[in-house]
């Protein structure tokens, strides 16, 4: 009986795993968290910054978005590209986008056209000028290599609440 129960439990576990794999196949797991820096003082009176979950913010506050992506399939994923809009009411902070093994591009037109920061322009009153961080509407991270089965990557940026 005990052995049978063990078997049932084990079978259920396998089933769960199989279901997860079935769901996961053809998928990447993608999670985003938003955090802010909090300055705390340790016992020695030394200040240190730590990232804490940002549930609430005030105008002028900076928040950090971290996007984690993981290949939960059993195949290698190619052409992996992460896209994130600069959230409404926030302004992207220049130079803050980060993503190991990725080329980072920006859009100033709601995600229709992307380019690296140095080549992006804005047409204003008929005049073409270099785009600035204030102009960015979207950010994307293009992975340079394939994402192997089970591998994960991270993309991050910082923005300030208007």
């Amino acid at each position: 009986m005990k052995i049978f129960m063990k078997f049932v439990v084990l079978a259920f576990a396998y089933l769960c795993a199989a279901m997860a794999f079935a769901q996961g196949s053809g998928h990447l797991e993608l999670t985003t968290v938003v955090q802010k820096e909090q300055i705390s003082v340790d016992d020695d009176g030394k200040q240190q910054k730590e990232l804490v979950q940002a549930a609430t913010v005030l105008p002028g506050d900076s928040v950090i978005y971290t996007i984690t992506f993981r290949n939960v399939s059993q195949e290698s994923a190619e052409n992996v590209t992460i896209t994130n809009p600069v959230p409404v009411n926030l302004t992207y902070e220049s130079g803050s986008a980060f993503g190991p093994g990725t080329v980072i591009e920006f859009s100033v037109d709601g995600g229709k056209y992307y380019s690296v920061a140095s080549e992006l322009t804005v047409t204003e009153n008929g005049e073409v000028r270099a785009a600035t961080a204030d102009d960015y509407t979207h950010i994307r991270w293009i992975m340079q290599n394939d994402l192997a089965a089970g591998a994960q990557g991270v993309a991050r940026f910082r923005a300030r609440l208007n």
């Binding site: 053809g26 990447l28 994923a77 992460i82």
Partner: peptide
Amino acid sequence: NIAEVTFDL
């Protein structure tokens, strides 16, 4: 905020 990933598998 919602991030999006596109990929080929």
